[in-house]
Amino acid sequence: MGLSSFKRALWVFHVATGSCNGCDIEIVAALTPRYDVERFGIRLVGTPRHADVLLVTGPVTRPMAERLKRVYEQTPDPKAVVVVGGCGSTSGVFYDSYNVVGPVDAVIPVDVYVPGCPPRPEAIVHGVVTAVAKLEKVAEKR
Protein backbone atom coordinates (compact mmCIF):
# COMPACT_ATOMS: atom_id res chain seq x y z
CA MET A 1 0.00 0.00 0.00
CA GLY A 2 1.57 3.23 -1.14
CA LEU A 3 1.10 6.72 0.14
CA SER A 4 -1.42 7.36 -2.64
CA SER A 5 -3.97 5.38 -0.70
CA PHE A 6 -4.18 8.18 1.89
CA LYS A 7 -7.24 9.90 0.56
CA ARG A 8 -7.87 11.77 3.72
CA ALA A 9 -6.04 13.04 6.74
CA LEU A 10 -6.64 10.73 9.65
CA TRP A 11 -7.61 12.09 13.02
CA VAL A 12 -6.89 9.94 16.01
CA PHE A 13 -8.23 10.00 19.55
CA HIS A 14 -6.28 8.27 22.29
CA VAL A 15 -7.94 6.59 25.27
CA ALA A 16 -5.96 5.04 28.14
CA THR A 17 -8.20 2.54 29.90
CA GLY A 18 -5.79 1.45 32.61
CA SER A 19 -2.50 1.13 30.80
CA CYS A 20 0.90 1.47 32.46
CA ASN A 21 1.88 4.55 30.39
CA GLY A 22 4.39 2.55 28.35
CA CYS A 23 2.23 2.46 25.21
CA ASP A 24 0.98 5.98 25.83
CA ILE A 25 4.44 7.50 25.76
CA GLU A 26 5.26 5.54 22.62
CA ILE A 27 2.14 7.00 20.99
CA VAL A 28 3.36 10.49 21.86
CA ALA A 29 6.84 9.56 20.63
CA ALA A 30 5.24 8.65 17.30
CA LEU A 31 3.95 12.21 17.04
CA THR A 32 7.24 13.92 17.76
CA PRO A 33 10.00 14.68 15.23
CA ARG A 34 11.83 11.34 15.03
CA TYR A 35 8.68 9.56 13.77
CA ASP A 36 6.51 12.55 12.95
CA VAL A 37 3.23 10.97 11.88
CA GLU A 38 1.79 14.37 11.05
CA ARG A 39 3.60 14.23 7.74
CA PHE A 40 1.07 11.52 6.80
CA GLY A 41 -1.79 13.68 7.97
CA ILE A 42 -2.26 11.61 11.11
CA ARG A 43 -3.12 13.90 14.00
CA LEU A 44 -4.07 13.42 17.62
CA VAL A 45 -7.29 15.27 18.42
CA GLY A 46 -8.79 16.32 21.72
CA THR A 47 -12.25 14.84 21.35
CA PRO A 48 -13.68 11.57 20.04
CA ARG A 49 -16.29 13.55 18.06
CA HIS A 50 -13.59 14.64 15.60
CA ALA A 51 -11.85 11.27 15.35
CA ASP A 52 -11.67 8.63 12.62
CA VAL A 53 -9.56 6.22 14.65
CA LEU A 54 -9.59 5.34 18.34
CA LEU A 55 -6.25 4.31 19.78
CA VAL A 56 -6.90 2.33 22.94
CA THR A 57 -4.17 1.32 25.39
CA GLY A 58 -4.31 -0.91 28.42
CA PRO A 59 -6.59 -3.54 29.88
CA VAL A 60 -10.05 -2.13 30.55
CA THR A 61 -10.48 -1.39 34.25
CA ARG A 62 -13.90 -1.62 35.85
CA PRO A 63 -14.55 2.14 36.09
CA MET A 64 -13.26 2.77 32.55
CA ALA A 65 -15.41 0.17 30.75
CA GLU A 66 -18.54 2.32 30.66
CA ARG A 67 -16.54 5.38 29.67
CA LEU A 68 -14.80 3.53 26.87
CA LYS A 69 -18.18 2.50 25.48
CA ARG A 70 -19.32 6.09 25.65
CA VAL A 71 -16.23 7.32 23.79
CA TYR A 72 -16.82 4.65 21.13
CA GLU A 73 -20.40 5.79 20.68
CA GLN A 74 -19.33 9.43 20.43
CA THR A 75 -16.92 8.67 17.60
CA PRO A 76 -18.65 9.24 14.25
CA ASP A 77 -18.88 6.46 11.64
CA PRO A 78 -16.96 5.23 9.73
CA LYS A 79 -14.44 4.57 12.46
CA ALA A 80 -11.72 2.12 13.27
CA VAL A 81 -10.45 0.96 16.65
CA VAL A 82 -6.75 0.21 17.07
CA VAL A 83 -5.61 -1.49 20.25
CA VAL A 84 -2.03 -0.66 21.14
CA GLY A 85 -0.11 -3.10 23.31
CA GLY A 86 -0.36 -6.56 24.77
CA CYS A 87 -2.64 -5.67 27.69
CA GLY A 88 -5.29 -4.14 25.48
CA SER A 89 -5.15 -7.12 23.14
CA THR A 90 -5.33 -9.92 25.73
CA SER A 91 -5.30 -8.31 29.23
CA GLY A 92 -1.62 -9.33 29.30
CA VAL A 93 -0.08 -9.62 32.76
CA PHE A 94 -3.25 -8.23 34.30
CA TYR A 95 -5.40 -11.22 33.32
CA ASP A 96 -6.47 -12.16 36.86
CA SER A 97 -7.20 -8.77 38.35
CA TYR A 98 -10.47 -8.03 40.14
CA ASN A 99 -10.58 -4.56 38.66
CA VAL A 100 -10.02 -5.51 35.01
CA VAL A 101 -13.10 -6.46 32.99
CA GLY A 102 -11.04 -7.79 30.10
CA PRO A 103 -9.18 -6.82 26.96
CA VAL A 104 -10.55 -3.99 24.83
CA ASP A 105 -12.46 -6.33 22.50
CA ALA A 106 -14.51 -7.50 25.48
CA VAL A 107 -16.00 -4.00 25.60
CA ILE A 108 -15.99 -2.52 22.08
CA PRO A 109 -15.34 -4.01 18.61
CA VAL A 110 -11.68 -3.85 17.58
CA ASP A 111 -10.27 -3.66 14.04
CA VAL A 112 -6.51 -3.70 14.48
CA TYR A 113 -4.32 -5.17 17.22
CA VAL A 114 -0.77 -3.89 17.68
CA PRO A 115 1.09 -6.35 19.93
CA GLY A 116 4.16 -5.47 21.93
CA CYS A 117 5.02 -4.37 25.44
CA PRO A 118 5.09 -1.63 24.41
CA PRO A 119 5.03 -1.69 20.61
CA ARG A 120 7.58 0.52 18.90
CA PRO A 121 6.34 3.78 17.39
CA GLU A 122 6.84 2.27 13.92
CA ALA A 123 4.46 -0.54 14.84
CA ILE A 124 1.88 1.94 16.12
CA VAL A 125 2.10 3.92 12.88
CA HIS A 126 1.70 0.68 10.94
CA GLY A 127 -1.36 -0.17 13.00
CA VAL A 128 -2.97 3.16 12.22
CA VAL A 129 -2.12 2.78 8.53
CA THR A 130 -3.79 -0.65 8.55
CA ALA A 131 -6.85 1.02 10.01
CA VAL A 132 -6.81 3.48 7.08
CA ALA A 133 -7.08 0.58 4.67
CA LYS A 134 -10.14 -0.63 6.55
CA LEU A 135 -11.77 2.78 6.49
CA GLU A 136 -11.14 3.09 2.76
CA LYS A 137 -12.79 -0.25 2.09
CA VAL A 138 -15.81 0.93 4.03
CA ALA A 139 -15.83 4.14 1.99
CA GLU A 140 -15.64 2.23 -1.32
CA LYS A 141 -18.65 0.12 -0.43
CA ARG A 142 -20.78 3.19 0.03
Binding site: R62, P63, T90, S91, Y95, D96, S97, Y98, N99, V100, V101, G102, P103, A106
Partner: peptide, 25 residues
Protein backbone atom coordinates in the same frame (compact mmCIF):
# COMPACT_ATOMS: atom_id res chain seq x y z
CA UNK B 1 -11.32 1.10 44.26
CA UNK B 2 -14.59 2.02 42.56
CA UNK B 3 -17.23 3.45 44.87
CA UNK B 4 -19.37 0.68 46.25
CA UNK B 5 -16.74 -2.01 45.65
CA UNK B 6 -18.12 -4.94 47.64
CA UNK B 7 -15.03 -6.56 49.19
CA UNK B 8 -11.65 -5.90 50.71
CA UNK B 9 -9.12 -7.37 48.25
CA UNK B 10 -6.30 -7.95 50.75
CA UNK B 11 -8.44 -9.91 53.19
CA UNK B 12 -7.50 -13.58 52.89
CA UNK B 13 -9.65 -15.35 50.30
CA UNK B 14 -12.11 -12.48 50.13
CA UNK B 15 -15.12 -14.02 48.36
CA UNK B 16 -16.43 -10.73 46.93
CA UNK B 17 -13.09 -9.95 45.27
CA UNK B 18 -12.75 -13.51 43.95
CA UNK B 19 -16.12 -13.17 42.21
CA UNK B 20 -14.85 -10.16 40.29
CA UNK B 21 -11.83 -11.90 38.79
CA UNK B 22 -12.94 -12.60 35.25
CA UNK B 23 -10.47 -14.57 33.22
CA UNK B 24 -10.91 -14.89 29.50
CA UNK B 25 -8.52 -17.83 29.09
Amino acid sequence: LPDGFPGHPWRKGDPETAKLVKRTV
